[in-house]
Amino acid sequence: MVWRFIDHTADVLIEVQGQDWPHLLREAVDAFRAYLTGTDSLADEAKESKDDRLVELEITGEEVADLWVRWWRALLRLWTVEEVYPLGVMELSCTDHRLQAKVATRSLEHLDWELCEDVKAVTWHQAEVQQQSDGFWRGTIVLDL
């Protein structure tokens, strides 16, 4: 697990690490799912469900941190508008300003709602992406609950 949830006033700050920028974006998907569904892995869930579907996302941003926030917002949109949650990234190509991804998703009907968190929005507060001295990438995001 390369993410952690950090106490942040009434909300939550999620810190994610990746070997590189694309890996950071992929790990964000797992962190997002883990936070919202209350489960760290997909191990307890069915491997496949007949209503799983691939969603294509194309996002542009002014710079890496901007793209990072918009990636999280797209993930939250899957949850709140499309009523699915992400299982993982199947394909991903990205630069500092643009990303295209195919994300495997599953219907919210499969969730135990008592474990789930309500997220109002992804915020710009403390939204950062940095490559660290050890070469790893670190990203932070605050969710308004």
Binding site: D7, H8, T9, A10, D11, V12, L145
Partner: peptide, 8 residues
């Protein structure tokens, strides 16, 4: 007004 965070 909140005094403790949710986690706390």
């Amino acid at each position: 007004g909140r005094r403790l965070s949710r986690t706390q």
